[in-house]
Computed example of a mutant assay.
Amino acid sequence: MSRAFVFPGQGSQAVGMGVDLAGAFTTARDVFGEVDEALGQNLSKLMREGPESDLTLTENAQPALMAVSVAVVRILEKDGGKPLPSLADYVAGHSLGEYSALAAAGALQLADAARLLKLRGQSMQKAVPVGVGAMAALLGIELEPAQEACKEAAQGQIVAVANDNGGGQVVVSGHKEAVERAIEAAKAKGCKRGMMLPVSAPFHCPLMQPAADAMKAALEGVALVPPRVPLVANVLAAEVSDPGAIKQRLVEQVTGLVRWREGVQYMKTKGIDTLVECGTGKVLSGLVKRIDKDMTGLALNTPSDIEAFLKTA
């Protein structure tokens, strides 16, 4: 069995996230404490108790998801005695999950990852006034017809494919009116269903350029070292280990397409047959079979998940 560790993106957060890990492992409590200290914020209390409306805010959800993901990997390493390179040949993360992957692989310090994600969330929120942008999921359509629908729907505004998640699930992002037009244009190209998503900003499209500029400046001041296992980057759908190249990909990722389907397929060509989702939720492990029926997805969310995994690892 050849594995990659993958890390979820925004939308997987939920009140109570990480509670059972913190209850079972000092290692998890230490991670959450370090993130709280880095942010000067009691984020772990918000994760534990809510309110959901505050946890869902981009600037809170992003570091919270990263904290739980890193806690899972550190538990495997410290409590399970299994170093990451012995468990996985690659790491990859969906959008913000790329920062989780880099922190888990030792390329980014945990405190730096937390602060960068806080800034990333704030910058993304500020980039476009609330109500101006939107995102929609198109179901039953592949990347190229979705891109054609976006071209037809733009009409002087911005709308672009934000995520190619695989299994006929494509997410588009941009000006609200253009996104609504893209849903209709996609239906004419065979899309079975289009639905607006409950997000606060149009992520992964050119409207996010102010946030990309903010991340470029912030990343210049952060130390980044080669990850212990290679990162499969969202915007490349290929591996990257050079710190300078990783920083550039993180900047491009703010406005660029998350090429998740292609990234998973790239890992398959490198012999990966199992994707292990570390953190909160089961979105990425659920997508695996839709991308490639020969691959397996596994989610490590709870202490029992971790204990069962360690018995086979």
Rank of each mutant, 00 (worst) to 15 (best):
V15F: 12
G174Q: 05
T255S: 15
I291Q: 10
S100T: 00
L275S: 06
A101S: 08
E37V: 02
M17I: 06
L284Q: 04
A114C: 14
P303I: 00
V199N: 07
V251L: 03
V128L: 04
A14Y: 14
R3F: 10
N60I: 03
D89R: 12
L76I: 08
M1Q: 13
P230T: 00
K282S: 14
R120P: 15
M215R: 00
I306F: 05
E144C: 03
A186Q: 02
D112K: 03
V235R: 09
A14N: 09
A218F: 13
S86D: 09
M47P: 13
A136Q: 01
A4E: 11
G156I: 08
E34P: 14
V251Q: 01
D89W: 00
M295H: 07
L43C: 08
F32V: 06
V73P: 05
A101V: 09
S44L: 03
H94T: 05
L76S: 00
V68M: 01
Q41W: 15
G271W: 08
K270I: 04
Q169D: 06
F32S: 09
N165Y: 13
D20T: 02
Q122G: 04
E239I: 03
A185T: 02
Y90K: 04
A185F: 10
S53W: 10
A88Q: 07
V283T: 07
A64W: 13
V170R: 11
K216Y: 08
K216N: 01
S44Y: 04
V159N: 09
F5Q: 03
V283A: 10
N60D: 11
M295A: 02
V72S: 11
G166C: 06
L96V: 07
H175K: 11
G133I: 05
V91M: 01
S2R: 15
E184G: 05
E152F: 00
F203K: 09
A146T: 04
T269W: 15
A38Q: 00
L76H: 01
M267S: 08
L119V: 00
Q10G: 12
G23D: 11
S53P: 11
P206A: 10
G256R: 10
E37G: 05
K293F: 12
K189H: 11
L197D: 11
E307W: 09
R259L: 12
Q253W: 12
T274M: 10
L84E: 01
T58P: 14
A201S: 08
K192D: 11
G263A: 12
S100G: 05
L55V: 01
E180A: 15
S44C: 05
G40C: 07
L65Q: 05
W260N: 00
V19K: 14
G18H: 08
P198L: 06
Q155E: 14
E144M: 07
D164N: 15
V254P: 11
M124L: 07
K270A: 06
G256I: 10
N234E: 03
N163I: 07
G279V: 02
V72H: 11
R3V: 00
T255M: 14
L275Q: 04
L287G: 04
Q13N: 08
L207N: 01
L224V: 09
D112W: 08
L231Y: 07
K192A: 15
G297D: 02
M195T: 10
R181D: 05
I158L: 12
A92N: 10
K189Q: 13
E49R: 02
A14G: 06
L84W: 09
A201R: 01
A237E: 03
E152M: 01
Q155R: 13
D292T: 05
G16H: 06
